[in-house]
């Protein structure tokens, strides 16, 4: 480790110091969809505003209450989704953003990269307004519990519906009730989603 280097990568630093597409109330940005996720209790909250035409993201604005990597990752995400098809944008994962930033410390990837969830929330809202609710549901889902074919998206939905601890998650999904091999991974995700949605 170089002592003179910053805590994070140069790309993170650049986006932290000069964040792109930050919402400015004076600009009167007109959005087609809005997504908010996160929890002040956990120190991170994020809002994403999208202007969408023919399923293509035309423009983006965002705001965040969060740490340096939260600011940088949202800024980076906001740049990369401009001109992107919403279906593709829906599949962006925290690790994709972290890679673009030249890497983030492991503990920061899950807690500070909320942008993808806020983006998805905004796209969900857009789809709902268009009467296309749930069209992308289940896409890019990763199977966590192989015994019962339960995906990360299923866990996310269960947490959103109020399953805020392991017992409630098991009641809602039956996850981990066969071989139990998925428990560690599932608990990690539970922790992460509770952080974001509760």
């Amino acid at each position: 480790m170089n002592a003179f280097q910053w805590l994070y990568s140069d790309v993170v630093k650049e986006h932290f110091v000069n964040p792109r597409n930050v919402f400015d109330p004076e600009e009167k940005f007109e959005s087609d969809a809005e997504g908010v996720v996160g929890n002040i209790k956990c120190g991170d909250q994020m809002m994403f505003l999208l202007k969408i035409e023919n399923d293509i993201i035309q423009d983006v604005r965002w705001k965040t209450y969060g740490c340096a990597s939260a600011i940088a990752s949202t800024s980076m995400l906001s740049e990369s989704v401009k001109g992107m098809d919403i279906r593709k944008a829906y599949g962006i994962k925290p690790t994709d953003i972290a890679d673009k930033l030249g890497g983030l410390p492991e503990n920061k990837i899950h807690c500070s990269v909320l942008g993808d969830k806020a983006l998805r929330a905004a796209i969900d809202q857009y789809l709902e307004k268009q009467g296309r609710k749930g069209e992308f549901k289940g896409e890019d889902a990763v199977v966590i519990c192989t015994c019962l074919n339960i995906t990360d998206k299923d866990i996310e939905e269960a947490v959103k519906a109020g399953a805020h601890n392991w017992q409630k998650l098991q009641e809602a999904t039956k996850i981990g009730t066969v071989c139990g091999g998925c428990k560690t991974k599932a608990e990690e995700l539970l922790h992460e989603f509770v952080h974001i949605y509760s």
Binding site: L7, F16, V17, C42, G43, D44, G66, C67, A68, A70
Partner: peptide, 21 residues
């Protein structure tokens, strides 16, 4: 948020600490 404040100050050469998670 505290970490963002701390790192902004750090860029100005000011060293402090924060109670942020």
């Amino acid at each position: 948020e505290g970490e963002a404040i701390l790192l902004s100050l750090d860029l100005e050469g000011i060293q402090v600490s924060t109670g942020s998670a």
